[in-house]
Design a protein around this nucleic acid. Structure first.
Lengths: 337, 337
DNA sequence: GTCCCTTGTATTAGCGCTAACAGCCTCCTA
DNA sequence: TAGGAGGCTGTTAGCGCTAATACAAGGGAC
């Protein structure tokens, strides 16, 4: 490869100053007179000098890099989150190292180790599950700035997240207000806030005096449109009197909608549908789908703010859990407009 | 933050060996006898040692990091590409530094400089446009491994990409075969392969003896569903006798479909629709949409292979342009099945 | 003219690691 | 028993940069 690497030394040789003087001049130190500074800066420009960030990091002990750990991105909302985070971090002068855990606990641990080895200044993590946060807690205790992008009040690590429980609650309450009492749940499995969604669902039902009914509960293997379609088929086959359904992601809600279309059900008259995340395709579906909005901007902004606050902090600040109240966007699929 | 950093020195102090011996032992050098090696490795484990990748990079002159430059991710296909790339690079021991250019030329340049400054081993770039590749060509000439993820045969830089021109050609030929001659084009502007798509469109028409008609051409500002919807409205308002439409992305195709639904047009009888990228939501739309498949797996695999080959290469290998022939997936929106 | 202070610069050390080399044993061979 | 060969480990230097310190020259105050 042999790239032509221009170092401070080369500028020093060219201008006749020492490496240290060049370093100071390029950093606009007042200790170097203006004339000298300009001359050195011009020489640097002429040589097309680019500072070696690696060497700088070794000295300064900060890389200005943060690690973003995601599970596999099947859910479109995660990509929006990732992009928004990258953008906000870039604004603050940080680059984003990116890795996916594939929803596997061992992989998640390995990825975090890699990031540590590369001396990232902090990490934003979508953990695989809520039950296994010990390794992340240890990270925090070791003084590593970490913010989880999903979590609960008992995480013992900083969290900035959409309040999925409240989202589930709001969605179901909305359906109950529209007169539904047999409300299905297409769940998302153990991953990423779905236990909270399920919990919100259960509480809203309970508050209305409606008991949990396993016959109304489906847990597909994936989060895809197809998974939603099949879950809907399964629920309908059970002949459970269902008149409304809540899906843990909009993709699955779209799958459910598709099933109703193909089987001659009218939405919302025969079947009301509510999804999660409020992705673009939910709004523009054949029947626009009501959805719990993810508030990507607020979540990512607060998460990045918090992470940078942790990086700048001295000691080990108190854990802060920020759950953002999500809005329900009512559309035709649940009788809106 | 003051994290407790364990260095080789700490292991050396604990075991009584020198730093160098420790370093060799941890790298399983045959020059260190087995017993010593084991003992040192255990000590390292006990201290929870993690090698400092930054320091290693400074010496080895490789960071095992590659930079991925994307335009803004509104197009869902880009996120799939990004994820697939991250995965393949991870398999080969590389981490992915991630940055978006926002479709701005200056930002693109700045991002590339940042990556250089951070000594990435190579870059994968979705350039903003095809007309401004000079800075990337210079990168290549300076010996930097670069692969473009979109491009044309005259790029003078390595390219691995879907053959968008051929995709456009195939889509239009398909529509012509189904009897259409007034075929609209909802274009994607100058960005990311859309000039090629347009060119394919024009050639297919020309081959069938049909002239280009500006009245059938719309160029929305974005790639969103809404943009497709509005472009469709604009095309229909022109009263141009259009019976089929090709959209440069599936998102826009979905917008076009939505317009037809709201205005009582039957698809495909009154209006055939074909999109690009074959995203999940195209397949499961109210009327499943025909689409040119992106072949994410092949593109990303070949791109990563090529990049790593360039990284390992000695000199400056010949430019290699790989355009992958895309398949047309015919669905109901253009009369399939 | 001495002293001190400022100004501008060079020198040195060190970040954590690797690579090249040097040195000291022990053991074998002639 | 001298001499060499190997095995094992330590020493030194250097990656490109920054920070601390040293130092030389010039200018003022007394």
């Amino acid at each position: 490869m042999g790239r032509p690497i221009v170092r401070l030394k080369d500028i020093a040789d060219k201008t006749g100053f020492s490496v240290n003087t060049v370093s100071l001049a390029l950093r606009d130190s007042p200790r170097i007179p203006q004339d000298t500074r300009l001359m050195i800066q011009q020489a640097a420009e002429a040589l097309n000098y680019l500072p070696n960030h690696i060497a700088k990091s070794l000295v300064s002990r900060e890389t200005r890099t943060i690690g973003l750990v995601l599970t596999s991105i099947t859910n479109p909302i995660l990509t929006r989150v990732a992009q928004a985070i990258e953008l906000r971090l870039a604004e603050r002068g940080y680059l984003t190292l990116f890795a996916t855990s594939n929803g596997d606990h061992q992989d998640e641990k390995k990825v975090i180790e890699m990031f540590r080895s590369r001396q990232v200044d902090g990490m934003l993590i979508y953990p695989r599950g809520h039950r296994e946060l010990d390794h992340i807690r240890r990270l925090r205790l070791a003084g590593y700035p970490v913010v989880l992008l999903v979590g609960d009040t008992d995480a013992e690590v900083d969290v900035v997240s959409m309040d999925a429980r409240l989202g589930g609650y709001k969605a179901v309450r909305h359906l109950i207000e529209r007169g539904h009492s047999r409300i299905g749940l297409i769940d998302g499995g153990q991953q990423r806030g779905n236990l909270e969604k399920q919990d919100g669902y259960i509480r809203a039902l309970a508050d209305a005096g409606i008991a949990w009914d396993a016959a109304l509960h489906a847990v597909p293997a994936a989060h895809s449109v197809m998974a939603g379609y099949e879950a809907m088929a399964e629920l309908m086959a059970r002949d459970n009197g269902m008149t409304a359904v809540l899906a843990a992601t909009d993709s699955m809600a779209l799958g459910a909608l598709r099933w109703t279309q193909q089987h001659g059900l009218r939405v919302p008259q025969d079947m009301a549908i509510v999804g999660f995340d409020n992705i673009e395709f939910a709004e523009h579906a054949a029947t626009p789908i009501s959805s719990i909005d993810y508030a990507v901007d607020r979540v990512t902004e607060l998460a990045v703010d918090r992470l940078i606050a942790l990086i700048r902090a001295d000691g080990l600040p108190e854990v802060e859990i920020t759950l953002i109240e999500p809005e329900l966007v009512v559309r035709a699929s649940s009788g809106g407009r």
